[in-house]
Design a protein around this nucleic acid. Structure first.
Lengths: 243, 243
DNA sequence: GAGTGGTCTAGACCACCGT
DNA sequence: CGGTGGTCTAGACCACTCC
């Protein structure tokens, strides 16, 4: 029995336009039909067309020129850029590799002062720390340390956290919706070198991250060390719209 | 004589709401008035309110809960995150430091095959390469190599490119609107160590970037090496909306 | 069931581009 | 000048949350 929800008109129009771009072979620089024509073609209002085009605009597929038209850009698309993708599984799969992971350890402990503050922990509340290595086609690519407040895990708090942490957080009503990541370079020390099967001194990308659920509440802290050449970390940047 | 354009109603509403959040002392978790009330208060339509709230949503200031309300999040804001900021000058200033730069060299040369392809260069077209060191309060923090097609520079093609390259591109009608950056870790070799006044082997963050103008045309290639602890590189990540 | 945000419409008028 | 995207409205109805 299918519980499919009808996709919104905006989504339908976007998919239709995307199909034109990809399958329809619209070359970079090509001009899209104007908004009224698109509205007519998809049998929706112009506002709906505009919202669909707006999402293509944000994703970099098209560029609008006031008074002139909407054009296909030549920007190469990244399927899973860092700013709109939380899942490394998706990124690894993108690179044509097979994602997997190994849990190295899991333990409850007292938070540090910083962790208590970042996770809004009440006095005495502990957190669960999970230590993992992510692999891409058997090759170690990320070493990570994740910390989640015990109180958030509910029935999972004494389970082995050996499946997707995002999946578990989702199931306990704290689906991760956004995250703030701080990027710094690092080099592998002896331990990281061993865990990631690389040489000591190999450059690594360190990601220090706070994850927030849909309510804007911090639910997980992560520290990750990425091997450089396994899969690409791409950030699509844009000029600020807020100033 | 002032040529100020009236900010759009959407911007006015957003500024008004932002003011409530910051000056008005709305605590994290606080509930905003509903959309009809806001529409009335700002004397605009609900659609306009929604668009204003949407931009706050994207910036992480508030979270919407269908059927419940719109709430202030506790997400700490980064003023200039990587994904919405192209200017390192702004980031350095954010960190309370004084940005400056030194041009080390500038020369026209033939592009490599890859550069020709990325910049859509016609046969025989040269590019100008600018080698710079950016400083934060006199301390070297970024070494960069930027390449721009000679043909784009127009009257500036034989000038010294010693001011903001983005500013120059803007003046010749190719304002940079977006960029795609690839992040990798690196370590300082002898040359980078000397230029950045650090030790050999110091971890660096390498950014390999293509800049696009508003028409979606690639206008500049950059390779940058960032010293880790000078200012923070923050990426605000979110769950993908496109799948 | 009352209240909230989510979707969508039809139409108006404005601002900018290009010929 | 005609054609395009940019802004904005007033209102309708739907979907979800929470009491």
């Amino acid at each position: 029995m299918s519980t499919q929800k009808r996709p919104s008109l905006v989504v339908q129009v976007r998919e239709g336009l995307l199909n034109d771009l990809v399958a329809g072979g619209l070359e970079p620089g090509a001009k899209l039909p104007n908004e009224n024509e698109l509205a007519e073609r998809f049998a929706v209002s112009r506002a709906t067309v505009r919202e669909a085009v707006m999402s293509l605009l944000e994703a970099g597929y098209v560029a609008r020129r006031h008074g002139s038209g909407t054009y296909v850009t030549s920007v190469p698309r990244t399927r899973h850029p860092l700013e709109t993708t939380l899942s490394y599984t998706a990124m690894i799969r993108d690179a044509g590799l097979k994602p997997s992971e190994t849990v190295l350890g899991q333990a409850a402990r007292e938070p540090t002062e910083q962790e208590r503050s970042l996770l809004d922990l009440t006095a005495g509340e502990q957190l669960v720390e999970v230590e993992r290595v992510r692999l891409a086609s058997r090759r170690p690519v990320i070493y990570s340390l994740d910390r989640i407040p015990v109180g958030l895990l509910g029935p999972f708090s004494d389970h082995a956290l050996d499946s997707s942490l995002y999946g578990i957080l989702d199931r306990v009503g704290h689906r991760v919706a956004r995250a703030s990541a701080r990027l710094t370079p690092a080099v592998a020390n002896a331990r990281l070198a061993r865990l990631l099967a690389i040489k000591r001194g190999t450059p690594l990308l360190h990601v220090d991250q706070v994850d927030y659920d849909e309510r804007g509440r911090s639910v997980m802290l992560s520290r990750e060390w990425h091997v450089a050449d396994a899969f690409e970390l791409i950030v699509n940047r844009r000029a600020s719209s807020l100033e």
